[in-house]
């Protein structure tokens, strides 16, 4: 295959994964939240309501695309893409299996965080361009929150980079092969790095605007935050990227802490892993997303000042201390 064609095919596959993930996650969110709330969730279209989302997509596509007359028209049109494109770009770094990766980036981990750092700009653009108080406040909150939580999120994955000695996601997965004491897989979450996982989890919840940190679209006060004035497929794009960000962060968590595509008891070099690896990674990712939804259905929302204080005064110092401790440990072991 020519290199250009190969790039196109990979990009198309990544787009397909992103769209499929969006469709699956909307259904999963409504079903999981429904059962957590002792409701049933969608159950009319298709078996167990499984076709509900596809009908919703048709609805989104055919809805009137409304732009408020007082909105900043250019920015209003641009903002959904500003949110969607970075989210799509992040897929390039994912490593699905031993022979399945969208690209072989050496700096994959840094790349994911670098492109996801652009998402708050799109959110602010949407908030500003809508020219509505709810949207603006929602946009500002989202940006403030993502900026303050990017620091602990990055700091919490640095210890993994130190122990693996690489920023390449493939190398980080490789560093988790083998067994401690002969039977415990050397996944980072089963090592002292479980502390790093805790920090990562809290920062990731905030980065994803998830409950208990979802005040950027706090329904009871801001209706739906920065996406307030959007309708039709522009709204669809904003939501698609939100679900896709959940997928990316969850896949990162699986890769960094849960051994990526590795399966305990199966030799990573065996040919069966070529297709089993991606399936296992997807399974781990969706278990992670389920936990995110579980938290969302369980915890109340905290206030914006509380969460900013938590980020700057607790999470960042804690990640810095943990980073230093890991440095000392890595140095002492090697």
């Amino acid at each position: 295959m020519s290199p250009l064609l190969s790039i196109l095919v990979r990009a198309l596959l990544a787009l397909l994964l992103m769209l499929a993930n969006g469709v699956v996650l909307i259904y999963m969110l409504r079903k999981v939240l429904g059962h957590l709330h002792l409701r049933i969730g969608p159950n009319r279209v298709g078996p167990f309501g499984a076709l509900q989302t596809s009908m919703d997509v048709v609805k989104l596509l055919t809805k009137e695309d409304f732009i408020p007359s007082a909105a900043d028209k250019w920015l209003f049109r641009l903002a959904p893409y500003m949110v969607f494109v970075p989210s799509f770009m992040a897929y390039a770094a994912l490593v699905l299996g031993p022979k399945a990766a969208f690209s072989g980036l050496d700096t994959g981990l840094l790349y994911v965080f670098a492109v996801l750092a652009l998402v708050p700009m799109g959110v602010m653009m949407a908030g500003w361009a809508s020219n509505s108080k709810w949207s603006l406040i929602g946009g500002m909150r989202a940006a403030a929150q993502q900026i303050s939580y990017e620091v602990p999120l990055l700091l919490s994955v640095l210890p993994i980079v130190m122990t693996a000695g690489s920023m390449s996601l493939a190398a980080i997965v490789k560093s988790q092969t083998g067994y401690a004491l002969g039977f415990i897989p050397r996944w980072n979450v089963l090592s002292p790095q479980i502390v790093g996982f805790g920090l990562f989890m809290i920062a990731a919840l905030a980065e994803l605007n998830q409950t208990p940190f979802d005040m950027s679209e706090a329904e009871s006060e801001l209706i739906s935050g920065f996406a307030n004035e959007y309708s039709g497929m522009r709204f669809g794009l904003l939501f698609l990227s939100e679900f896709s960000n959940s997928f990316i962060i969850s896949a990162l968590a699986a890769t960094l802490f849960f051994g990526g595509w590795l399966v305990p008891g199966i030799d990573p070099a065996s040919p069966v892993m070529v297709w089993l690896g991606p399936a296992v990674l997807l399974l781990k990712t969706y278990v992670g997303i389920f936990v995110l939804m579980w938290i969302r259905g369980t915890l109340p929302r905290i206030r914006i000042d509380q969460m900013l204080a938590l980020g700057w005064k607790a999470l960042i110092p804690a990640s810095l201390v943990w980073l230093m401790l890991t440095g000392v440990i890595v140095r002492a072991v090697s």
């Binding site: 965080f113 670098a114 492109v115 750092a117 652009l118 708050p120 700009m121 602010m124 990017e150």
Partner: peptide, 12 residues
Amino acid sequence: VQLMVYAGAVSV
């Protein structure tokens, strides 16, 4: 780093 620091943080 340019993307993360300047485009991601400074412009926000």
